[in-house]
């Protein structure tokens, strides 16, 4: 009911506009956050892909005799404690953050969806799975990730795995909720009654209806994962120091933030802008895909 109330005043404009302006312009006007977020994110992806051609040098090459130099024509963002070029490290660092963000979003969506589906369809597995998910959620995510990292040696793969574990429960609960409400829908009940096999029901009726909520959730997970990677690296339990990641650059410059603030500043700015872009994209997607959810958050 409230949905119609919200949408009503916009209706005439929506109908009137498309013919006059181009479709792109309309899209931009109707979804400014998607455009802003998506645009920024695209720029960051390009930066990550094109890192070698953006005036960078080897981000791991050390020059101990050129340490902690402030930004200059030669080193645009200055150098760190080992004389490495912070500009190059920051640009290459985009790769790590984006890979971690996207990989965690993808993996936790897939695993969480699988668990949520099983939980929603297989009654005797429902309680054990959800209890384990509750247990995982009850452990603060950062602490869980730190403990998982202590278990393994630092690598991007392990960082992705550790953060994924902390994000799966949210997805599983979301999907299970959707499954349980969809099961009550007449057309699903009808499909079950007519003997359609469960995988087919999932494929035809359930999955398509979870996509909207899932993709919104996935963007938020992506943003959270990028921040978590930075925090893990910041306290020394993240990406190995041989790989330039924003968290690592900040971790290494941390003790010098008073005297050499530029070491921390540049990666921090890049990280914030990237996470901002993903969050904006998520907000935009949510508004566009699911007006009911837009109301809730």
């Amino acid at each position: 009911m409230s949905t119609t109330y919200e949408a009503a005043p916009e209706l005439p404009e929506v109908l009137a506009e498309p013919r006059k302006r181009g479709r792109i312009a309309t899209f931009i006007r109707r979804h400014p956050t998607i455009v802003a977020g998506g645009g920024l994110l695209t720029i960051m992806i390009l930066v990550a892909l094109l890192a070698p051609w953006l005036g960078t040098v080897d981000p791991t090459a050390i020059k101990p005799w050129m340490r902690t130099r402030p930004p200059s024509a030669e080193h645009w963002f200055g150098t760190d404690m080992l004389g490495r070029d912070i500009y190059s490290r920051t640009i290459y660092g985009a790769r790590v953050s984006l890979i971690v963000g996207f990989a965690v979003a993808l993996l936790s969506s897939v695993a969480g969806t699988a668990l949520g589906l099983v939980s929603g369809f297989v009654r005797w597995l429902d309680t054990p799975i959800m209890r384990v998910m509750d247990g995982l959620m009850a452990i603060p995510g950062i602490l869980l990730a730190i403990a998982l990292m202590a278990l393994t040696q630092g690598s991007v793969t392990n960082v992705v795995a550790a953060i994924t574990v902390t994000q799966i429960p949210q997805v599983a609960r979301l999907i299970r909720g959707v499954v349980l409400s969809l099961r009550e829908q007449p057309y699903v009940e009808a499909a079950i009654a007519s003997g359609t096999r469960t995988p087919m029901i999932i494929w035809r009726h359930i999955l398509p209806n979870t996509l909207a909520a899932l993709s919104v959730q996935a963007t938020y997970i992506c943003a959270a994962a990028m921040i978590t990677e930075a925090i893990l690296s910041f306290i020394g339990a993240g990406t190995p120091p041989t790989i330039p990641s924003w968290g690592n650059i900040m971790a290494e410059g941390r003790s010098l933030w008073q005297v050499k603030p530029f070491i921390v500043f540049f990666p921090a700015a890049f990280l914030s802008v990237t996470v901002l872009a993903v969050n904006l994209l998520g907000d935009g997607l949510r508004d566009a895909l699911d007006p009911r959810m837009a109301k809730r958050l």
Binding site: T60, M81, G154, P241, T242
Partner: peptide, 18 residues
Amino acid sequence: LVGTDLPIIKAQSDVTND
């Protein structure tokens, strides 16, 4: 093996790595 929580050890390791 690199104990990254001790700066003196990490700095030496980075130079040796190079």
